[in-house]
């Protein structure tokens, strides 16, 4: 073999290994940089006092993250609870009941909606959802709400993740062999029984993976939530109270508080918390998926 060809081959493959490894390095670097930057706040306060307190008074040197963490979790949980049942039901209808013409009509719409930027969903939320909650919905339950609330944040996020879920569910259900459905139908199962006991069951690992993806997306979503959730650092009490999720905290304050080194460091800790939770979440779900796949086979 000609030497030049071998040299070309070697350089190319080495370079490719290098880019892949640099992506590995990127993740470690992000973690390390964020950790180094949060060091200042961690050295002044115990981790427990940071995570366990909900008092956020940066000017007085009090940095309690609990309200933000609780706000993030509340808004994410609400979004998934609101989004999963209709997304799953609609996807089952599209794959098991609708004919292929209707399916091919829906698919591009879902695709398009999955691509619409968060900020646009935020605009819609501000224009329609916030007034709806403050004027119509909230008066039925509480004395007063501005409409900028946990509920608004949860609904906007739910609407954002529904197209994402439906796109993936659609692919998932389409990949399940027809034989399997027919085996169930041939035993006298109705279409719903077949969908629930065979299709959904077979697709369970994929459904879990999709939900994990939707949770990560909702968890880290910044702009859309920030525009409608009110951004008040209280523990989430009712659906109509404002909340303040972690990403919104970073987005609202970063860059403007550089004069207070503790404050900047606290915001970096917020980013680190997001980073660590996402990684932990991925690792755990990976393990669950692995076991689920083996069990269903």
């Amino acid at each position: 073999m000609k030497l030049s060809r071998r040299i070309k081959d070697l350089t190319a493959t080495r370079l490719m290994m290098l880019t892949t490894m640099s992506a590995f390095a990127l993740m470690i670097i992000i973690g390390v940089v964020l950790a180094v930057k949060s060091e200042q706040i961690l050295s002044g306060h115990s981790l427990w006092s940071l995570l366990g307190s909900s008092v956020w008074k940066p000017m007085k040197g009090e940095f309690g993250f609990l309200a933000f963490i609780a706000g993030t979790l509340a808004v994410t949980a609400l979004a998934i609870v609101l989004a999963l049942p209709p997304a799953l039901m609609a996807s089952i209808w599209l794959s098991e009941y609708a004919n292929s013409r209707i399916r091919s009509l829906f698919a591009p719409v879902i695709d398009l909606l999955a691509g619409i930027p968060p900020v646009v969903y935020g605009v819609w939320g501000t224009l329609t959802l916030v007034p709806l909650i403050s004027e119509t919905l909230a008066p039925c339950f509480v004395d007063f709400s501005t409409g900028y609330s946990l509920l608004a944040g949860g609904i906007v996020l739910a609407i954002m993740v529904i197209p994402l879920m439906m796109g993936l569910f659609g692919e998932l259900f389409a990949s399940i062999p027809r034989d399997l459905r027919e085996a169930s139908l041939a035993l006298g199962a109705t279409r719903w029984e077949t969908a629930r006991r065979v299709v959904v069951r077979k697709a369970l690992p994929g459904i879990v993976a999709t939900v994990v993806l939707a949770i990560s997306r909702a968890f880290g979503e910044t702009i859309a939530v920030m525009m409608v959730c009110g951004n008040v650092a209280d523990m989430p009490g009712s659906l109509f109270n404002p909340v303040y999720p972690l990403p919104a905290l970073i987005a609202n304050n970063y860059g403007e508080m550089m004069s207070l080194p503790d404050y900047e460091s606290a915001l970096m800790l917020a980013a680190l918390i997001l980073f660590v939770i996402i990684i932990a979440f991925n690792v755990i779900s990976h393990a669950i998926l692995h076991r689920l796949k083996q069990r269903i086979a």
Partner: peptide, 12 residues
Amino acid sequence: VLFGIPSIVYGA
């Protein structure tokens, strides 16, 4: 995992 990291973290 990288895909799941929130965009605000990439921003920061």
